[in-house]
Design a protein around this nucleic acid. Sequence first.
DNA 1: CTTAATTTGTCCGTATGTATG
DNA 2: ACATACATACGGACAAATTAA
Lengths: 209, 209
Amino acid sequence: MEQKPAKKMFLQIVKQLRELIIDQHIQPGDKLPSERVLCEQLNTSRSSVREALRSLELLGLIETKHGGGTFLADVSGNQLVEILSSFILKEERSQKDVHATREMHEREAIRVICQEFQLRNLPIWDSLFAQIELQQEVRRDVILRECIVAAGNRLSLKIWMQLAAYSMTSLKENITDSEKQVLQVLIKSMQMGYVEEAIEAYNEWMEQL
Amino acid sequence: MEQKPAKKMFLQIVKQLRELIIDQHIQPGDKLPSERVLCEQLNTSRSSVREALRSLELLGLIETKHGGGTFLADVSGNQLVEILSSFILKEERSQKDVHATREMHEREAIRVICQEFQLRNLPIWDSLFAQIELQQEVRRDVILRECIVAAGNRLSLKIWMQLAAYSMTSLKENITDSEKQVLQVLIKSMQMGYVEEAIEAYNEWMEQL
DNA sequence: CTTAATTTGTCCGTATGTATG
DNA sequence: ACATACATACGGACAAATTAA
């Protein structure tokens, strides 16, 4: 043991990598130091560095190109979900919590929009309303995403995107005819600033799914 | 290359491990084949097997004991959220967003408690009320934590704990005299199931801080 | 286009600490 | 106390892909 007699070297490296990313202001798409440089800087072996990097790669936090290098990924986190869901699968309880938490963020976004004049009057709502009216193809997640983006809480948006990936099976589909009315009530209520009506319409929408 | 010339050996191993777990009916807590057995069965090197195992360990899907073996974890509490949060929050710690998101989870917990008879009648509320009444030392985060725990959404709890870590400067302190009344109204409203009153009391509380 | 340097991908061997019987 | 099995960690070697000169 050449370094501190600590447990889980690869966990330490993950931690140090996060600090490195913060300190060096490494942005998504930027290149990380090579494996050999890392194991020299962090005073460990290349094997341990690789174990840490593979872990982060499975999480979708970094991307590696054979012969090219290691890059900080955009936090889309799609790969992660597939892996987790394939392992968890029957954990009904977890799915329920994910669902409830996702809807929590969506409801809060709707409340925020209702309560702020500038957000209620964004042109996007008329645009969305028209798209639904004209029965154009509108995916469910697009509508919800617009709401959360408009609400302006970027952290909430990031959390939501992670959670939404779990519900994508039903969420990424286009809206059906039966959803049309409820959605129009939802949007109109938001524009008028009627919180209770908007939330009620939202709940009605979610019960349909 | 001893195996198929496919890309990302460690990803293949992850996949094969999942099949192994399913085929062999390995349950949480059960032991997985040792690294040497695995690299022999899957016809790869120990390094590649280890990279795959580390990845699953970071995801919380397996647990390894030094000298003991590798075990399938109880996926009920996967640590995914903690890891993702620590990366997402790395520079997204716009205090405003963290604050708003944390309060979102707290409000939702209060709503859930109000709306479910069994949660409203938990003995913890009388206990909390008495502690406040007797002016014993009660930390703010303890009260909020109890609410979220009671609400029963474990995912929300995990997210909240991450967010709360950033608000700890004010949140870990004991409540003051001026908060006493508002808090008692909050608890009583929850017990009675008065959602609006409870939320209003909560908002009043947060404005004091 | 060719060549050389860099980087990741994979495998092997060795030594050490830990758990189990 | 001892032996076996196992994970941990390190370092070296070569192949394959990328990149730059």
